[in-house]
Design a protein around this nucleic acid. Structure first.
Lengths: 349, 349
DNA sequence: AAATTTTCTCAAAACGATTTAAATCTGGAA
DNA sequence: TTCCAGATTTAAATCGTTTTGAGAAAATTT
């Protein structure tokens, strides 16, 4: 490994000047700077992170703790995030330290990582309402960025989609098509995104003066089997007139619902409209569904770079308030949504 | 953060003595050692890792690069490994830096991580025969540990199961039950484990003087659909008399085979014996299969601690030869294997 | 030409530990 | 009393960087 000292000896300069030249300080002469930079390239100089850290107090590494769930529901999105995230971090010369949380207490693994004292910040995902990790990290004054959003006014950086609008937009679309009997197959309300989607749903149906009975609003771990079993129950009409439209929290759930509709001989979209939110995971392409799925779409992958950059900017001193991004998911109308069927125009009582 | 300097000032000792006292050097007086230790406890002294690293030249981090495959076949085992690994590493105060490989050239991501110069070593998984990563890291003199084994005599640390014996033991068991028509649904022979399993299979059938036609030996990405489609093809008997026993590379494949057998009205184990190798992933419990699956069993999870410790020991100077573990998978006979059916005793031509 | 400013470079301190080589202290032998 | 060996302790070097305060060189003003 070449060091500043070696280069300074080679160039006949002091280490201070070499360091300044490489770090873009304005007071170095343009000619010396190019000389230094050339030698650095030639010798393949890489600053020693440990030494940098010792003097700057920063390590150039951020942590992420993944919560392992027995149902493995997070796996597919996790890989997608991981791929993009490591790439985006690497572009700014930051590495990702990963740990798996097997603890019951959500803050314990964070405390454990902090004790080792090697991290500049954290990337948090899957926020829950009033997330205890936020309180913990804030109190310890550790920078972090949240993937997702837990409340309207917060003082930390985040990047997420506007989940209220996800369901709001879906309801608006379906209402415009004449639907009055709209069901929601939501994710676990334990998680913030699902509580937001639920709130957005309730707001939107109220705005359209639609009443949805409680049995048409359910929450569970997003999976195909959840979509299938709930879809069968709803569409069989045991608890009341079947919905003419179903909004699903994920394309996986929608796959189950489409399956259920097919098994019951219902045509989509003639008899039933189906919408879902699409994270645009490469394995599960909504456009390839039969029929092609109408969705609110916000690719997971696109969250990675902003997440990485928000966190690094924050670590480097940028104010949290400037590092908050809430994007609106696109509404993509494909073939799974259509006008309400004639016999389905009657609203629920 | 309290430092050595502060403590030395408080105690009226030099930092050298304080450092020595805490690190258990024999030359410090017993009385001073206890004095130092007491103060350290009292002041909550934690050595600054960065400073330690700067002087010892070690970073306390090891890297792992996961190769993302479009089929996602590695996902399930990856999480299992990740969980155990981070825990085992943490126990020895080492952190895991993760990157995702999207490159075609297998060594590029390793080179990229090394360039950043923050790692003490690597954990490699999914070896291929004559793995180019091994050559690369050896040449760069970077310590690593391999999960799995690529050849009989190697000079690097590894932990893996004896894959030749996995299929060997399966064949022995089935042969003892009288089976002569045994098929193999192997994993991708691109990967070392599958080439070993195939070699073990061929050795074992030869030892029992069994001849297996080539159409009964296939390789593919382990998945349920592979098991199902190949199972149907084999059991329908289009290419010749159907096998009386099938050995599967994974429980996932076995699930597909059982499904195929059921669809064809074949009883397991009366008409067909099924064995699989079981990595003991928590999502896929062989004992809950119907019928409960006979397996060779080697829990993935148990590999984690040895992997972590082998690597750290190697980094700390232990000879590679002392850090090579090849374990034999347990044979667990449950309900999916039974005596060869009367009409199936005829061997293949 | 002298005084002043601007531009650039440098030596040294700092970060917090480990480790080497040297210095001090003890007690016993000469 | 003097000297030596062994037991403790210390000062200082080291790791590789950043940063401070100062100094030299060049350019500008008086």
């Amino acid at each position: 490994m070449t060091t500043l000292k070696e280069m300074s000896a080679e160039l006949g300069l002091s280490v201070a000047t070499v360091s300044r030249a490489l770090n873009g300080f304005p007071e170095v002469n343009a000619r010396t700077r190019t000389r230094v930079q050339q030698l650095a390239d030639q010798m393949g100089y890489q600053p020693n992170r440990t030494a940098q850290r010792l003097v700057t107090g920063r390590s150039g590494m951020v942590g992420m703790i993944v919560k392992i769930r027995p149902d493995m529901s997070s796996e597919q999105t996790f890989f997608e995030i991981l791929t993009g995230l490591t790439a985006a971090l690497a572009a700014r010369d930051v590495d990702l330290v990963l740990a798996v949380d097997q603890d019951d207490d959500p803050v314990v693994p964070y405390a454990r990582m902090l004790q080792r004292d090697i991290l500049d910040g954290f990337i948090l995902n899957a926020p829950v309402p009033d997330d205890p990790r936020v309180a913990f990290l804030r109190q310890r004054k550790i920078p972090f960025v949240m993937h997702g959003q837990t409340a309207d006014m917060v003082d930390y950086p985040f990047y997420g989609i506007d989940n209220k609008r996800v369901t709001g937009d879906a309801v608006d679309l379906l209402a415009a098509l004449g639907h009055r009997r709209i069901a929601l197959l939501n994710g676990e309300t334990r998680l913030a995104y699902a509580t937001d989607r639920l709130a957005g749903f309730r707001d939107a149906i109220a705005a359209h003066a639609i009443v949805v009975p409680e049995w048409c609003i359910t929450s569970d771990v997003p999976s195909e089997s959840y979509g299938y079993t709930r879809g069968l129950a709803l569409l069989a009409g045991q608890q009341g007139p079947r919905p003419t439209a179903i909004i699903c929290a994920s394309t996986l759930i929608a796959a189950g619902v489409l399956h259920a509709a097919r098994d019951l001989g219902l045509r989509v979209p003639a008899d039933l409209s189906v919408m879902a939110h699409d994270d645009a995971l490469p394995q599960l392409r909504a456009i390839n569904f039969e029929p092609a799925l109408s969705v609110t779409r916000a690719p997971m992958r696109e969250a990675c770079a902003p997440l990485a950059n928000h966190l690094i900017d924050h670590i480097e001193g940028a104010a949290a308030i400037t590092l908050q991004t809430l994007i609106r998911a696109a509404v993509i109308v494909r073939k799974s949504t259509g006008p309400v069927p004639a016999q389905g125009k009657v609203p629920w009582p």
